[in-house]
Design a protein around this nucleic acid. Structure first.
Lengths: 197, 197
DNA sequence: GTCTATAGGTGGATAGAC
DNA sequence: GTCTATCCACCTATAGAC
């Protein structure tokens, strides 16, 4: 693996282990096995390194979401989006935390890359589109798509954050994924049009 | 106000403004208007100060939740719990972030006070009780109360975190509270027993 | 591209005077 | 209880040799 790749890889590990407060160029250099100076040949400064991490995270996240489009019906595509969301959060917990759970101030970051912001919006638009499809197909209440998308996002993000904060340590991965399925069931129930009575 | 109170007050402000990375004893002392040394007369060290902050936060949070018990029916008590949750999150955003959104590692904390952990569990038990009531009254599907409570908590926590991370800045407080009401509606719909068809 | 050496800064915490 | 003075650890970042 190239040094630049190793730096990014170890950055993720370091962030997970020590948290944002414990992330330092010196500590990183030690893990990578070079002197701190060497890092500055690959990244302009600390902010640039973290920005790259964020950027790659969103890029990767997008590819997870796109998988959901192979679903055959709008409702299935919405559900697969939810599953893709948790796939990403569980397989890349450090990136997820960095992208969605860490205020910039906590990273000591002054500015966030514009492209990261744009990708964040893109993610939300993707979800809004899934909701619009469902409304058009009559499998979801006809409420403002953005409000519904926010509700869905909040629900999956809430569960993912609780998990990644270590507050559900008593559940093994299988049990957690079962709860994810339950959550997605509940989300669908919350969106379902009133049934004929 | 006594110095000790002022220290705690300014700690919250400092955490909100600068994030956990920007929280330092020196910066705090400057805000309070004393020298850093003086802080150590009131708190053994940085960890003890943050632990006190956490502890008071949970204590205050409990008092918010208890208001919900004035509801007349199980469903109303559940809904009022949700409202109380957001009341606390919006009125004490720095405490909320500290209690529910910040991994200990990000604070540079080695250990979390046991009483904070216990209060966290207590909070969850409160919610489980609200759910159990609803199940007993037949207004909620008869599923595992803990799983249902986790779902409800994840949903409100998700929305609160997104809000406090500044990602819904385009909504003013009134608009946000409207969305809260919408979210609570959706939660109730997701818990409702299948209606007779 | 990586090193040694170093500048310049911030942080937690304590000793001892008042 | 609060101050001045201070110690020591750790941080980001750069200059210049190899």
């Amino acid at each position: 693996m190239e040094t630049r790749e190793r730096i990014l890889h170890e950055s993720r590990e370091l962030l997970r282990e020590k948290g944002s407060a414990g992330f330092s160029m010196r500590g990183l250099a030690e893990r990578v096995g070079v002197t701190p100076t060497a890092l500055y040949r690959h990244f302009e400064d600390r902010d640039a390194l973290l920005a790259t991490l964020l950027d790659e995270g969103f890029s990767n996240f997008s590819s997870y979401l796109l998988r959901a489009l192979s679903g055959k019906t709008p409702l299935e595509r919405l559900r697969r989006s939810g599953i893709a969301y948790f796939d990403f959060a569980l397989e890349h917990p450090r990136d997820y935390a960095l992208m969605f759970m860490t205020p910039c101030a906590d990273l000591g970051l002054q500015t966030v890359s514009e492209s990261a912001k744009a990708r964040m919006d893109g993610t939300f638009v993707f979800l809004v589109d899934r909701i619009k499809e469902c409304i058009a197909a009559g499998v979801c209440i006809a409420y403002e798509p953005r409000a519904l998308a926010l509700h869905v996002w909040a629900t999956v993000h809430g569960l993912a954050s609780i998990r990644l904060n270590g507050q559900l340590a008593e559940l093994d991965e299988r049990a957690f994924r079962e709860h994810v399925a339950f959550t997605l069931d509940r989300i669908e129930a919350s969106l379902a049009p009133a049934r004929a009575s």
